[in-house]
Design a protein around this nucleic acid. Structure first.
Lengths: 197, 197
DNA sequence: TTATTACGCTACGATACCGTATCGTATCAT
DNA sequence: ATGATACGATACGGTATCGTAGCGTAATAA
């Protein structure tokens, strides 16, 4: 609260104008590069080339290549809204239809295999992957909890099993069997996963 | 069938002793290296170091790094037997329990994300991935077909949907949520996937 | 206006690859 | 035994990458 501290705060806040602009430019290019080639082919030199920001400047903001990759990956977490249709099946359908629509198109769907692979051997990426994963499952877990609260779903039902039964088949089609994901498929999966009620 | 052709055959067949020994040594090291670091960190130099086979020799057998990686990946296809217990649920249970057992331990489960990632942008790897995938699904498709033949399963049932409903949740737990896969989970998934009968 | 701060540019050193060339040696068939 | 063939060792040239250093310039705060 002293004047000196105040001025320090103002200084750092205004310096951020230039800094933030650089950071944003670099992160955009990094994100784009990541989407195209995955974690493996990500290079600081290429980010510098694309962004127009000098490599030295990049290294003034991120101590290492990995730090930049991790930062770029963190922006990949898909924020998804939780619907509230009143019924469990309605909510789940809304969520899965949205995901089914995003899976063939969204940027993160091209990068996620790369993160999964890296996470297999790198704890830092395992942490990021875990956060992304929780983000995907969160809306489902919430509507399931609401259904329990309403008495629509028995409290003994295992939420994580149901989530796996819902998301698993969709992910399987996107990354393993590479089959298209149409509405009929999604509805069948929902019917099967919620059949035990 | 001429003598000259015969001698040519014999020659190539015996030369193969040395050649096959080299090929086998290299492929073993390549497979091991692949299991540890995935496709991205795979290098011919490292294979040469580990195998003791000179890099020049490796390049006499494989024209390029990628050819060697692809060859090593091809050996990763898990041969799985198709059970025959007499009932659909029995067969499916046998298959999925086996997979659930392999998922946390088998070498290919560590490499598969890497192949999936590479396949996302490389058609050659997409082809390999497709073969691996068909290998995983084949036993399930066979027991499903047998169930249809017995009349245990309606012919209109979509096999590829059921396969996705069975394998998807298991794969989801191995590579996405990273939760353990216990017997209770597998049995629940089977119950859900076959509930529509 | 002036001092500070961030930035750009160029150039490094170090490392790790790929794929090839050369040449001498060991293995193998006959 | 001998000629053919595969192998090993070493050394390249070329490229890409990481991360750093030095120095001049532009933006910014005071």
């Amino acid at each position: 609260m002293t004047p000196s501290k105040n001025s320090e705060r103002e200084t750092s806040a205004k310096v951020n104008r230039r800094v933030e602009r650089s950071r944003h430019t670099v992160l955009s290019a990094a994100f784009e590069l990541l989407s195209e080639g995955g974690v493996a082919s990500f290079s600081v030199d290429e980010v510098a080339r694309r962004s127009g920001v000098a490599k030295t400047t990049i290294y003034r903001h991120w101590p290492t290549r990995e730090a930049l990759v991790i930062d770029a990956c963190s922006r990949m977490i898909a924020e998804q809204e939780t619907p509230d249709t009143g019924s469990l099946e309605g909510d789940v359908t809304a969520i899965l239809m949205e995901i089914a629509h995003l899976l063939p198109t969204a940027n993160w769907s091209f990068v996620l295999p790369s993160i999964v692979d890296t996470a297999e051997r790198n704890p830092e990426f395992a942490e990021i992957h875990s956060r992304i994963q929780r983000g995907h499952a969160a809306p489902l877990r919430e509507v399931l909890q609401r259904a329990v609260d309403r008495g629509e779903l028995p409290a003994r039902a295992d939420a994580s099993t149901i989530v796996a039964a819902l998301l698993g088949p969709l992910f399987y089609r996107r990354w393993f069997s590479r089959e298209p994901i149409d509405d009929a498929f999604v509805k069948t999966i929902i019917k099967l996963a919620l059949a035990s009620l």
